[in-house]
């Protein structure tokens, strides 16, 4: 059967790991922002983002 595409699975696994690390770094930055931001500001922004 013809393969629809070629893929380097090792490279893909590295990408997956890097994506997770970057998301965790984002969480750290976001938490730091949350800590110094008044509740009415972060909760309004969260509401407009996820609703």
């Amino acid at each position: 059967m013809k393969k629809p595409f070629d893929v380097d699975l090792k490279e893909l696994a590295k990408d997956k790991k890097r994506n997770l690390r970057e998301r965790l770094e984002f969480i750290d930055a976001y938490v730091e922002w949350l800590k110094k931001t008044p509740n009415d500001v972060w909760s309004r922004q969260q509401k407009s983002t996820i609703e």
């Binding site: 800590k35 931001t37 509740n39 009415d40 909760s43 309004r44 969260q46």
Partner: peptide, 19 residues
């Protein structure tokens, strides 16, 4: 984020999500 933490209790004021 402003909240008051005591063991077993957190008080917080925020805008509510539909959730």
């Amino acid at each position: 984020m402003e909240y008051a933490y005591t063991k077993g209790r957190i008080e917080i004021k925020k805008e509510l999500l539909k959730l």
